[in-house]
Simulated scan of single mutants.
Amino acid sequence: MTTITAPTDSRRTELATFLRSRRERISPEQVGLPPTGRRRTPGLRREEVAQLAAVGVTWYTWLEQGRDIQVSAQVLDSVARTLQLDQSERAHLFVLAGSEDPSPVQDCPTITPSVRAVMEQLEPLPAVVLNSRYDILAHNHAYTWIAGDLDALPFEERNVLWQAFSDSRFASVLVDLAGARESVTARFRAAMAEHSSEPVWKNLLQRLRRTFPEFEKVWERHEVDGPSNGLKRFLLPEVGLVRFEYTNLWLGPRLGTRLVTYTPQDEETRSRLEQLAGMR
């Protein structure tokens, strides 16, 4: 039996922010509403979400304001559909609201117990599972040595692009940060060609462009690149320089979700990984 925990003040605040960000990325045309000319704010209005989800305007406003109100699973389901949430976003919505999903989406079939077991067996080699949008879907403990405590980050920041351009542990220890930013942006642009009309992709792009001026500069170069293996160096404050060859291991027939492993290039790196493992 699933135990449901009532949302705390901090979770209600995050729920409010999450709903607002998803509402602002949906245009009236995407949900079949007629255009109404220029709007002061992007996306849908609160009353439009309430209308489409068949809930009261006041109730939805209180929900988006983070007030302490009771939320039924059926209403959350309607809101999720109206805001066109993907599987991960839907699950996140129900967790924040402290409600059990009546139609739960199973974990991504590529993140199976066997994949998690492989990541654990790779210790002390860092390993991470990414989708084509560069969202971080799963990782082993060794990956935290280069990326920090990802579980402590907000849902929206568990993304390699966000990590590369923000003030993150990943960005601070990556030796060739400028080159990595250019590379991942070019690959993201190429991958987005197949998903340019999807709200979750457009929302990520908008947030990156709005938040990071450096990303905007790189994005405007219109470089594209395909996925490939390569080399990365990290200067870790705990042990010093480590050198890796990273390898993409695809978890399906298409170039989407993959397991990325970091293999030491030299014995010095391997020794330093053992040293990090001994600090746990």
Rank of each mutant, 00 (worst) to 15 (best):
S168N: 07
S183H: 04
N140W: 05
S172N: 11
I146N: 05
L137E: 08
V184K: 04
Y143I: 10
G179K: 14
P102M: 13
E120H: 10
V118Y: 00
D167T: 06
D149P: 02
Q106D: 13
R116Q: 14
G179I: 13
V115R: 03
A147S: 06
I111S: 08
T110Y: 15
V118D: 02
R116I: 12
N131L: 05
P154T: 15
Y134H: 11
A138M: 04
E100I: 06
A164L: 13
V115A: 05
Y134K: 01
S168F: 07
S132E: 14
R181E: 12
C108M: 03
Q106P: 11
V184W: 03
L137N: 08
A164C: 09
G148C: 06
D167Y: 00
M119L: 11
R158P: 01
L125K: 11
A117H: 11
Q106M: 14
S114F: 08
A186M: 15
N140E: 04
V160E: 05
P102D: 14
L130C: 09
S166Q: 05
A127L: 03
S114K: 00
D107F: 12
L122M: 14
S103L: 12
D107A: 15
E156C: 07
D151V: 14
R181P: 10
D107T: 15
D107N: 12
I136W: 05
D149M: 01
E157G: 13
R116F: 09
V128M: 08
S183P: 06
W162Y: 15
A127S: 05
E156Q: 12
F155P: 00
V173R: 02
L122S: 04
A138V: 02
Y143W: 09
A171L: 08
N131F: 07
P154N: 15
Y134C: 09
T112K: 15
N131P: 02
L150D: 04
D151H: 14
T110W: 14
S183E: 12
P104K: 07
E100S: 15
P126Q: 10
V173G: 02
P104N: 10
R158L: 00
L177D: 03
L174A: 10
A147P: 03
T185F: 06
A142R: 07
T144C: 08
S132P: 02
A147R: 00
W162T: 11
N131K: 07
A164N: 02
A186T: 14
N131G: 00
V128S: 03
C108K: 06
L174D: 01
A178D: 03
N159Q: 07
S172G: 02
T185H: 01
Y143G: 00
S183K: 12
V175T: 11
L122E: 08
A152M: 09
W162P: 02
